[in-house]
Amino acid sequence: MSRAKLQRLGINLPLFPTTSVGSFPKPDFLMKARGEFAKKLISRAELEKAERQATEFWICKQEELGVDVLVDGEMYRGDMVAYFADNLEGFEIGGLVRSYGNRYYHKPIITGEVRWKGPITVDWWKYAQSLTRKPVKGMLTGPYTVMDWSFIESYPDRRAATLPLAREIRKEVEALIQAGAKIIQIDEPAVSVRPEELPVAIEAMHVVTDGLPAYFITHICYGAFEHIYPDMLNLPVDNFDLEMSNSGLDMLALFQKQRYTKDISFGVVDVHTHLVEAEPVVEQRLRQALETLPKEAIWVDPDCGLKTRTVDEAIAKMQALVRAAQALRTVTSDQ
């Protein structure tokens, strides 16, 4: 497993390291500030102050809960693709399109040559890392997902748009590493949706990560893993962060048929329900994981970003998973 790689990077983690997928809910004061900023009632600097305060809140919370690998909570992001589209050259932000029901969003349009203008997330990462001694993950959206969630005008096809995005996102990865990040997560939630394009996503991930000294995680969601497993293991990362609970741990059956060969951030709490899982439920899910996967390979986290939950629900869900991991740690190391 990749424990050796983490050690080489100077990172020592306990058994069943706990982490989260990336986003946390924005506290009320930040939601208010965002609303006021949209109405031009407060300045960019004032909004940023609220974003920093909210980042600090979540770093402290994660420390308090005993989480092992922290995230900044993405307090400064609206949407995981538009945020990068806004900060790369070559994008326009298009008019509103429907997400569902009465919800709409601005979908980016790739209209020029995509280009990295300079660090995007590095200052946020540095700020978050300055608040804690525990490792903070660098968090990026992967090239395949940025392509899939954008309209493409300036490239002839989807692969032709994905590869330059990969080349430019690599520059952000290099900048994060330069700043000291050792664990970097490249989210590719869109990867499971068009199985026939998995080779494009793999090719792009090589461009992003090859030869770089960091431990790489990728988050994939929306189920349908049966169509991309085991081929998805060819994505050049160390750890797959997967939605396991939402699908009743169905993935484990796939792993039994075809051996799973990487580390896994095993989603043990469902992010789509208000109900907070009881600690024994979470522990039971982990025990099931242990029947199929080696203990050194398992990280523990929620199924997906917690941003759609309330602050209290998010904290309670994180607490349940941290306690379950700690309990299991004690039992397992006794054996």
Partner: peptide
């Protein structure tokens, strides 16, 4: 019931 993705679009259906 709840939302699911409609094919490979970014649109969701109930």
């Amino acid at each position: 019931n709840g939302l699911l993705r409609f094919f490979d679009t970014n649109c969701y259906f109930r």
